[in-house]
Nucleic acid binder design. Structure first.
Lengths: 212, 212
DNA sequence: CGGCGTTATTCATCAACGTTGAGCCTGCGG
DNA sequence: CCGCAGGCTCAACGTTGATGAATAACGCCG
């Protein structure tokens, strides 16, 4: 299939110099994932484009899902533009957060990446629950920053879940503006510092399980 | 919910169950499992010996584990000889149960089948929790037969678990006679009819999870 | 009522999938 | 100069999806 060229370049053992294998895989994966989506992209295809053995993907990234997560970490960082969302008036942070998340779904790239079903969306949710959460904690600061950030991420994770991962039948689905209307106050409440040391029910960690 | 039709027994298409292949697979599997153990036996090898496609194993038995379960159901039935254990004086049933289970480990066939690690022993435990339980319920009869049989199977499952599936370091392991000494009273207690209608907490169903 | 295409259902095949374990070979620290 | 660790290849693993025969009941017309 690939090079029948006289160069049997792929010898066994450790390669010569400092091979940029990882980057080659990520680059090929980004292209193919965006082009054919998650399910439509096979590890073997990525490996072929990158010019490496398929087993190397499992070796470097653990699994196909891990590779996807790696690609998305880059892609999400660009699309979500976390830093860009965080700067600005804290009072309007909820609006910017919602816009960033809903905006993902108007991004064609994201749709082809994400509208494939199973593991792909988990990766995105997990991204939110790690990367965004860390940034938020750092941004919010203060004593209960973690709790507040968790609450925010929980809400956003639920949004992603109901919008994509387990989408409701279209009549029940909310439009973007409805989402904005409904979720903004919730986010504002979640972001607000605790008024006092009430037993504020401690925002539940996992908020993404759906009834059916 | 579905049709209350009295006898739509005749299905529509091709008749179910093509005997030669299924039996050929089971037969080949029994041979290879006994000869090379669970891990040492590949589904492709079984398929080759049986002269069928490897995918048929997944089709007929769901998975390699399922095939193993099928083979073991036969093998267990012979080795455990449930019927033989059940007949006789109910007063000495505990002794016979323990002897049957510990006897499995003195059976060379069982060791090669089972001493392979991962999924193989789960199958045996699951066998106990279905087949033996059903027979026990039937044998015990009476009102709380299910509860008593569940208690018995829980104990025996625990025995299997600690003896093989998650074996303790040898100093901590019990000898066969120690097991007999310790577990017989427990089994007797489990088998005893409930003295009265206490809220007997209903013997816990899953008793096989270990700390680490 | 009997023949016959239609349809439904099961069994079998093939290629491909993602993943793993064993081993190879190079680069580097001692 | 040698041992060892690490990037890597290769073959094989268990499993899946698409596709195609085989087969039996149904619909129908005559």
């Amino acid at each position: 299939m690939n090079n029948a060229a006289p160069a049997p370049a792929r010898t066994r053992g450790r390669p010569r110099g400092n091979p940029p294998t990882r980057e080659a895989i990520v680059s090929a994966a980004r292209t193919l994932f965006l082009e054919r989506g998650y399910r439509g992209t096979t590890v073997r295809a990525v490996a072929a484009v990158a010019g490496v053995d398929a087993a190397l993907i499992a070796y470097h990234f653990g699994s196909k899902k891990g590779l996807f997560a790696d690609v998305m970490q880059f892609q999400c960082a660009n699309a979500l533009a976390v830093d860009h969302v965080l700067v600005g008036d804290p009072a309007t942070l909820p609006e910017r957060l919602i816009e960033a998340v809903t905006g993902l779904w108007e991004d064609a790239d994201f749709l082809t990446l994400t509208a494939q079903g199973d593991e792909a969306a988990e990766v995105i949710r997990e991204y939110l629950e790690s990367e965004l959460l860390g940034r938020l904690v750092e941004f919010l600061g203060g004593r209960d920053a973690t709790a507040r950030a968790t609450a925010v991420v929980t809400i956003l994770g639920g949004l992603i879940y109901t919008r994509y991962l387990n989408p409701l039948p279209t009549p029940a689905a909310l439009t973007t503006s409805e989402i904005r209307e409904i979720l903004t106050p919730a986010l504002r409440a979640a972001l607000a510092p605790r008024p006092r040391t009430l037993t504020t029910t401690g925002a539940g960690r996992r908020g993404s399980s759906a009834p059916a």
